[in-house]
C-alpha cells in the first residue's frame, strides 16, 4: 500500500500557512518565551500578545484562577507598547520561518489606525489581528466587539490604514455573534478568529470576596470548547471569509471538530500552559485523522459537518 501523503498547508486570508495550527494571542507572549520549549518553525502562525499604542500596566493581581477544566484570567492587556514591541520583541521573530500575526488593541479607532500604520512598515509582520474582544479592559476592546456599527468602523479604519491581511477577533460575550462577524466582513476583514474568552467569575466563599482583583475575568480552556465550537459553526455558515477557530482545543481531535464545524485553521491557547508542545501534538493528531479517513488536504475537512 502506498504511503498516504497529506497536504497540511493552508491558504488563509492571503497567508500561506505551512499548517493549520496557530498559537493564540496572549498565551504565547512574543514568541521568545516559548522558544526553549517548542520549535517555533513548526507553527502555522504565531499570534503575538496584544500590542497597544502605549504600554499598559495591566490589572492588579490576583489575575488568575483555575476553575473546573478552565482558566479564568484578568490580565488587562499588560504589554510593552508599540515602540518597545518593534524595538525589542519583533527582532527575535526575524529568524522564524512561520507566519507572524500581531494582535492590536486600541482604546480609540485612532489608536488602532496608528498601530496598523506603524506595524505595516515592518516586513516581519505578516498580518494583523484586530482585538475587539478583550473582556478585561474598561475602554476599547470589548466595547467595539459587542456593537455591529463600532465593529464596522474600527475594521474599516484599519482596513484603510494597511495593506496587510486583516483578521478580526470576535467576542463570545454577545447575544448573537453572527451580525458582528458580518460587520467585520463587510468592513474588509479578510478573516475572523473566534472565540475570545467568555466572561466569568469565581468567589472565595471563606473571605466572601471575588477571587480575581477585578471581580470578573475571561474564561478559557476545555470548559469553553462547546460554546466556541457552536459559534465557529454559526459564523462559518454566515460569512464567506475564513474562520480561525479557537477555544479549549487540547488535542488533534478537538482541532478536527473545529475544522469540521467550518474553521479553516485553529489556534491553541490555554493548552500551551498544560503542555508547551501542545501545538505539535495537535498537528500530529490532525495528520493521523487525515490518514485514517483519507483526507488529502485540510480544505477537504473544513466545514464537512454532516447535519443530516
Amino acid at each position: 500500500m502506498s504511503v498516504d501523503l497529506v497536504d497540511i498547508r493552508v491558504n488563509l486570508a492571503g497567508l500561506e500557512l505551512k499548517n493549520p495550527v496557530m498559537v493564540a494571542s496572549g498565551t504565547f507572549g512574543y514568541g521568545q518565551e516559548y522558544a526553549r520549549f517548542i520549535d517555533l518553525n513548526q507553527l502555522g502562525a504565531i499570534v503575538v500578545k496584544g500590542v497597544s499604542a502605549q504600554p499598559m500596566a495591566g490589572n492588579p493581581p490576583p489575575r488568575l484562577v483555575e476553575t473546573p477544566a478552565g482558566l479564568l484570567n484578568s490580565i488587562g492587556l499588560q504589554n510593552v507598547g508599540l515602540e518597545v514591541f518593534i524595538r525589542d520583541k519583533l527582532p527575535f521573530l526575524q529568524g522564524i520561518d512561520s507566519v507572524v500575526i500581531v494582535n492590536i488593541l486600541g482604546h480609540t479607532v485612532e489608536e488602532y489606525v496608528t498601530l496598523a500604520t506603524e506595524l505595516s512598515k515592518h516586513p516581519r509582520v505578516d498580518a494583523l489581528e484586530i482585538n475587539i474582544s478583550c473582556p478585561n479592559v474598561e475602554r476599547g476592546g470589548l466595547a467595539f466587539g459587542t456593537d455591529r456599527q463600532a465593529t464596522f468602523e474600527v475594521v474599516q479604519a484599519v482596513r484603510q490604514a494597511t495593506h496587510l491581511p486583516l483578521i478580526t477577533k470576535l467576542s463570545p460575550n454577545v447575544a448573537d455573534i453572527v451580525p458582528i462577524a458580518r460587520s467585520a466582513q463587510d468592513a474588509g476583514s479578510d478573516a475572523v478568529s473566534l472565540i475570545n474568552t467568555i466572561l466569568g467569575m469565581a468567589i472565595d466563599i471563606h473571605q466572601r470576596k471575588p477571587v480575581l482583583a477585578k471581580t470578573v475575568g475571561g474564561l478559557s480552556g476545555p470548559a469553553i470548547k462547546p460554546i466556541a465550537l457552536r459559534m465557529v459553526w454559526q459564523v462559518s455558515q454566515a460569512v464567506d471569509i475564513p474562520v480561525i477557530g479557537m477555544g479549549g482545543i487540547m488535542s488533534g481531535d478537538d482541532a478536527i471538530e473545529f475544522l469540521l464545524a467550518g474553521a479553516s485553521a485553529v489556534s491553541i491557547g490555554t493548552a500551551l500552559f498544560v503542555d508547551p508542545q501542545a501545538p505539535i501534538k495537535v498537528l500530529k493528531g490532525i495528520e493521523e485523522y487525515m490518514k485514517r479517513y483519507r483526507f488529502h488536504s485540510i480544505r477537504e475537512i473544513v466545514g464537512q459537518l454532516d447535519i443530516g
Binding site: T27, F28, R36, P62, E66, L71, L272
Partner: peptide, 27 residues
C-alpha cells in the same frame, strides 16, 4: 509565590507589584 499559568513569562498572569505605589503600577 503567586498563582501561575504558563510559568515561562508569556501569559502575564502571575504578576506582583514588587515596588508598590508607582503610577502606573509596575507589575
Amino acid at each position: 509565590e503567586q498563582r501561575m499559568a504558563c510559568g515561562v513569562g508569556a501569559c502575564m498572569g502571575c504578576v506582583v507589584e514588587v515596588v508598590r505605589g508607582k503610577n502606573p503600577p509596575d507589575y
